[in-house]
Each structure stands twice: as structure tokens, then as C-alpha cells.
Amino acid sequence: MTPVEFVDIVLLILLAITGIAVIRTRNLFAAVMLAGIYSLVSAGLFVVMDAVDVAFTEAAVGAGISTVLLLGTLALVGDKEHKPQHTPILPLIVVLITGGVLIYGTSQMPPFGAADNPANQHVAPYYLEDSYDETHVPNVVTSVLASYRSYDTMGETAVVFTAVVGVLLLLARGPLPQRIHHDGEWITVRPGTTREELAAQFKAETEGGGGGPEGGGVDPGGGADPEDRGDTPSGEGGERG
């Protein structure tokens, strides 16, 4: 066993242990921290595989920023996970079978890093040999990402931008309008309406009709539209995580 292989195996074992720990723990705070560790170990693994740029990204994003964002989320939703209602036996069996078939299916894959792999025979050698002449950029990864395949990188930049558009649409502009159940009717409530305002609104609307509802009578978003049975994903509550 060469030293590199030894490091490989140690890192993979660490990765497996971290992965299982993430699944097992019911404390989401611990899970987030473990996920950060998972990213860090993967980054190590990428370094050993000579993919330094990837390792760098994994460390910065996976272990760094994502952890912070996940913690930010935990601050909003709490860090306790519900106990799962189902036993994980069936999923486990499925995963084992699928995994087994996959291992069998990929057993003829070319060995990692061998020079005569198809992956190292076609486009890659061209980049290695000609990219410096064509771009004068010593880091082949940079020249591929930012020049040969810069259209892809443009797309990735757009993906990142899309992500923030999505998050801002949902989070940064106050709560979304809600459909709430009131007095047998479903109504849409503009965001930013407090319960007191709502109660006042109802009172105004039902004036003369007798007995406006109490402020607490408003039940934001609870239950499903009675006419719409079957649309609410069943068991979603118990399946979180």
C-alpha cells in the first residue's frame, strides 16, 4: 500500500463515518457541523486526487459559506428534527440493491488516473499541450474554465445569480401572501397584515351581519381546503429530514 493509497483509505473511512453520523443525529446543529466536516474531508480527498481547484472550492463553499447559511436557517426554524415515523428498512434495502447493481455496473470503468483512459486521450491532452501556447495561462483549469469553456462558466454565474433571485423572491421581501381559512371561506391575505388588522377587517366586512370574529379566530394556513382533499401531501410533517 502506497502512502497515497493509505491516505485515500483513511479519508474515505472518515467520509463514511461523517456521512453516517449526519444521517443518525437528530440534532440539526450537529448535523450542520458534521456536514461542514464532510465537505472538509472531501476537500482533502480532492487534494489527494490532484484536483486542487475543486478542493479549494469545496473548502470555501461547502465547509465555509454553506455552513453559515445552514446555521442561519437553523436560527429560523429550530434545531430539533422530528422522529421519523417509518422504519428505514425498506429504503435501506432499496439503497443496498441499487448500490450493489451500480457497483457491478461500473466495475468496468477505466481505472482512476491511468494515462491511457479515454478521458485522458482526447480533449484533455490538447488542453495540457496547447493551452499555454494559445492563452499563456499557466493554470490549465483556469484557461479551460474561463476561456475554452467560458460559456459554461457564464452559465454557472447565471445559476448563482438565479439562486439569489429565488431566495430573495421568497425571503427578502416580507412574508408571502397567505390563504387563510376564515368563517368557512378561503381568502387571500396580503403580507404584512397583522392579526389585529385582520380582525378589524373582518369586523368591518361583517358589520350588521352580527358577531364579527375574535382576533384569535383567524387560523393562518391551517388545514387544507375542504373541497380540495387529496392535494395536501400526506404525511409530509412526519417525513421532514
Binding site: I65, A75, L76, V77, A163, V167, L171, A172
Partner: peptide, 13 residues
Amino acid sequence: ALFYAFAGRRRVD
């Protein structure tokens, strides 16, 4: 922006 979006919110419950 993502950080602000998450950190800038009050806890729901």
C-alpha cells in the same frame, strides 16, 4: 445577499 436574507429574518415560531 443570501446571508442577509437568512440572517435578516425573525424566527417564525
